[in-house]
Design a protein around this nucleic acid. Structure first.
Lengths: 189, 189
DNA sequence: GTCCACCTTGAACAAGTGTTCAAGGTTAAA
DNA sequence: TTTAACCTTGAACACTTGTTCAAGGTGGAC
């Protein structure tokens, strides 16, 4: 344990898996490549992650966490400011990177192919929807819970579209118009 | 050559690859599984498709073709009817099946991971955008070409979101509200 | 120092991968 | 029937994969 770069090899292994997944897809994530990318021996990957599927499950959880932060309540701001920030965060340069979008895409694809990943993904999706609906509810207290969820669902459709389309390289202007559209849905009278 | 089921083994191989891809993702598409699914010998897959990647490229082209048909001009209808039909076709039960959506998703993921697939995909995306813009131009001749493409881009964002979100199992009502949103964008004054 | 629990290594194994190819089958024209 | 072009087969190949495991390292408690 010295330079600070060396520590927490488990974290580096997970990070390596995330990097490989985003760059080369699931077929690029094999134990040897992960070990190489993390700079550790092959056996260590199986030491920290019992299975290959445990490793991928950990990656999935990591991404789901990151996405959930987008709709986390922020006590420092007023309700409608919170909602607006949350909606605009989706186009943050930090999140709209190929790395993150690509990860999301590959994880969606994985969830389509494997039941257990699908369950994790669906649960995270549900929590995201709840978080967004709650933000809407705070910003517009006159709406019923069902109306909030309805708007949240509609917004998520557009947001998912933005994420996906950003990957395909559609122009930035269209992304910003879509952001405006989500705000319109959220704040509609 | 007899029963009609037996013929065109090349087509059956491609169909088998598509089925496997949609159900199990790219890691489920291996030459042996494709051969088994198609009911042919292993060697025949490599006879008709030089490579595994040729096979996948063929699958990609097949799906791109299918999507392009959505915005194909239909001389039998009036321009704005054509546009409306095209926009509503996206939620057709035939297309909104898990099989087709799942295929699209896996192909997007593949395109993210492999440069050559990305090029094919990007070209098809461009053609889809052009097709949609043309339909809009016909229905609303007062719009400039740039305005048409702008609306087409915005619509595609929502459509991609619908496709993706439909896979995650969001409620059907939200899908239909999103369809309405695309019509609103298209026909806005 | 001695211990002990933990971390780290890479060789080894069995199973699966894409691809090749010699062998044989089928079809229709000559 | 002979011929030739095409189709179809599955064994065999070299290579990659996930997983296991004996061996050794490390750091702190005693």
């Amino acid at each position: 344990m010295n330079s600070g770069e060396q520590v927490d090899r488990q974290e580096r292994i997970l990070e390596a898996a995330l990097g490989l997944l985003s760059r080369h897809g699931i077929s690029g994530v094999n134990m040897r490549a992960v070990a190489r990318e993390a700079g550790v021996a092959l056996g260590l990957v199986n030491y920290y992650y019992e299975d290959k599927s445990s490793l991928i499950r950990a990656a999935l959880h990591r991404i789901d966490e990151r996405d959930l932060k987008l709709v986390a309540p922020d006590p420092a701001s007023a309700p409608d400011e919170q909602l607006q920030k949350a909606l605009r965060r989706v186009a943050d340069p930090e999140l709209l990177t190929t790395q993150h979008l690509s990860l999301r895409l590959h994880l969606w694809a994985l969830a389509q192919a494997h039941e257990d990943f699908a369950l994790i993904n669906a649960a995270a999706f549900e929590r995201y929807l709840d978080g967004l609906a709650a933000l809407i509810g705070n910003a517009k207290p006159e709406l019923s819970g069902d109306e909030c969820r309805e708007r949240a669902a509609d917004i998520v459709v557009v947001q998912n579209g933005m994420w996906l389309t950003a990957l395909l390289g559609v122009d930035e202007a269209s992304i910003h118009r879509s952001i405006a559209r989500t705000e319109q849905i959220a704040f509609a009278a």
